[in-house]
Design a protein around this nucleic acid. Structure first.
Lengths: 103, 103
DNA sequence: CATCTTAGTAAGCTATAACTTACGGTAAGT
DNA sequence: ACTTACCGTAAGTTATAGCTTACTAAGATG
């Protein structure tokens, strides 16, 4: 059920922006905040959520904290997606639909 | 940006349950409501969101409305995921991280 | 060692997502 | 035709997600 955290983490636009910014390169909290229309504490809180969803990780460097993308969360999501992706599933669904319509 | 709607649609647990219930077989609103701990109108509202995210579609049948899974939304999500999935991206990220650590 | 930077946490505010009950409207059954 | 079944929409309530400012702490810098 790890994908649940990923869904709600990436459901927020600001959080997606932060996540996508980290895609370019690892960044500190301050750097990330400059690229977003919200305050630095807000970014901190968002990063906490992203971290819990295993979408980012931190590397403390003295004073600063460098955040970088982590793929674990995406992998959880991909696995969930995959389970919906069999042709058999789709075929079964439409078949039932056809029968219920009485055709 | 269609994936945005998919993220927020599937971020809600009840909505995921409904979606996963439809995975088994197409169902009417009433049938879906019986399987969920919320009222029937609530299910209706959830279905509206799922439909907007292109995750389900409807087939009206006289009195009732048969909902069934639609893959378009999942496809949008899969495409978004894929863009994060290149090895080059990951490699670049860790490289920068290493340099910033001064190693 | 004083202060300036960096960032997490606390507390409080506000918009809204998710729910409820009530209602209206269309199709089916008698 | 009348009643029953099915479902969407409206209106109103409530919990909470996301934001802010203020505070605290720890490392850099002079």
């Amino acid at each position: 059920m790890a994908y649940a955290a990923v869904f709600s983490a990436l459901a927020d636009p600001t959080r997606r922006h932060i996540f996508e910014a980290l895609r370019e390169q690892p960044q500190t909290v301050g750097e990330l905040a400059k690229g977003q229309p919200v305050s630095r504490p807000a970014v901190s809180q968002h990063l906490k959520v992203l971290e819990a969803a295993k979408l980012v990780s931190v590397e403390p460097q003295g004073n600063r904290r460098l955040y970088l993308i982590k793929r674990d969360g995406l992998e959880d999501l991909r696995q969930y997606l995959e389970s919906f992706w069999s042709d058999a599933l789709s075929a079964y669904g439409t078949e039932i639909a056809r029968r219920m319509k009485g055709k």
